[in-house]
Design a protein around this nucleic acid. Structure first.
Lengths: 255, 255
DNA sequence: CCGGCGCGCAGGTCTAGACCACTGCCCTTG
DNA sequence: CAAGGGCAGTGGTCTAGACCTGCGCGCCGG
């Protein structure tokens, strides 16, 4: 198991352990495999068992792992059908037989402004990773995309190359599989800078999509995207309240 | 606070305390009121503070109460359900606390064009009821709305006054309760005629929403709406949070 | 050979403290 | 009167134990 506890960096120990466990699970634990026992973990990291339990409690709450009395703690099967909906741009385009590409506009750490802090439900000034890209499909601009992720969720992300698929990296390296979210959709007119990036006229209609994506109760990603209206439509299945959900949602490209 | 802890009946103490607190909140705590402090509760019930915290943790997980560092623990406002979809315009606006109104632009029978026939999955030339309105919210134009309904579904509809709430009439007079549907969402620029109706500049961004609504397997309504982008945003849940995460521990499952 | 019991280990619950950061408020000081 | 510091109280975190029940397996006796 990689990682060590740093007792002096201010991050609560149980949070550190939780993330160590999450990464460990994501990287080398198939569903059904057992975690070390609470007492083992306590000894290995030099912690009280109650502290270990606090870390494990969190992951159980997220339904990442599962306790069984008398047996141990086990990795749960990821919910496959959930994974399809909150898809990343690259997955989405590949599924549609288009060649996705991206030009990285910025990839840096910033401090949360008042606005971003509110959107991400964090304190103002919290370090965030900002990842801004121009997304292309078949070599033609499709959207300008800006993601904000709490930095503490993705230690070391900025030391890497900017990922080609953000959601893939989040899931494979950090165990952050987006489970649910909400989109705020509106129409807007292209600003000069956005128009230039997307290769459209200033004032052209764009689809603005703000997304909050969550893992368990914690928001992990806030993103703002501007899609070219002439290249992108959304398809949204609806249902009447009280009817059993179909649980489908997909973004769709229409030529 | 009513109730006492029974240390010998087998029910975990924190569960007993949790239910005592829940009852206490339900009976005499308006939203915003404070609970006794953790130390108070521990002393009053003769428990360790960690045990009290476990009870409180559960209620915080249920979003019944809320902790504020340095201040105390407070009763939350019950959450409103935002999960309203496939609602009619009037329901939607009422939910937002606005006064809905409509100006009828046309209310007539037409024959399905090739395009409409394809959208409604009917034969070309099939009689349709066309209902076109300018929808207002708080007396200001919000959208231009056009519904197409197979005429055989709504006999006698045209002999009435144009309905104020289309979905209400469909459901109350014809038993057509929309069960599911799909929205196609895109951004577009206001045409001269639409711009004039909506009281915006030509070329202003609009949200174009095409909706297919179904009862059972049969499509009952095809509609096209143009919403003013400056007045309308769409909220789309991507994936339900599912079960409220709790700190309860399940037993009896074998991986 | 087979059945049952007990041991070891898993998580579940609980205790009685500790120190920390944060908040609101009072009281002192300028 | 205003600004600031101190203080008491809050939740946040952590410790090092305790004893409980549930579980599987191996040992031992029939």
């Amino acid at each position: 198991m990689a990682g060590e506890i740093d007792r002096h960096n201010g991050t609560p120990i149980y949070v550190q352990l939780r993330e160590i466990l999450r990464a460990h699970i994501a990287q080398m634990c198939p569903p059904g495999s057992a975690l070390p026992s609470e007492r083992d973990l306590a000894e290995r990291f030099g912690l009280a068992r109650m502290t270990v339990r606090q870390a494990i409690d969190a992951l159980v709450g997220e339904e990442v792992i599962e306790r069984v009395v008398g047996l141990g703690t086990f990795v749960r099967k990821p919910k496959l059908d959930l994974q399809v909906k909150l898809t990343s741009y690259s997955e989405e385009m590949q599924r549609r037989g288009m060649v996705p590409a991206a030009r990285v506009l910025s990839f840096e750490q910033i401090n949360a402004s008042a606005f971003l802090a509110r959107e991400l439900q964090l304190e103002e000034g919290t370090p965030l990773v900002r990842f801004r890209r121009l997304l292309l499909a078949d070599n033609e601009p499709m959207s300008v995309d800006e993601n904000f992720i709490p930095a503490h969720r993705v230690p070391g992300l900025l030391d890497r190359e900017p990922p080609t698929s953000l959601y893939n990296v989040l899931s494979e390296s950090y165990g952050l599989v987006m489970e649910w979210g909400e989109d705020m959709i509106e129409a807007t007119a292209a600003s000069p800078s956005t128009a230039r990036l997307l290769n459209v006229d200033v004032g052209s209609p764009l689809l603005k999509i703000q997304r909050h994506a969550f893992v368990a109760r914690a928001m992990v990603d806030y993103s703002v995207s501007y899609y070219r209206a002439d290249r992108y439509k959304l398809w949204v299945p609806l249902q009447r309240p009280g009817v059993r959900p179909t649980r489908n949602y997909s973004t769709g490209y229409r030529p």
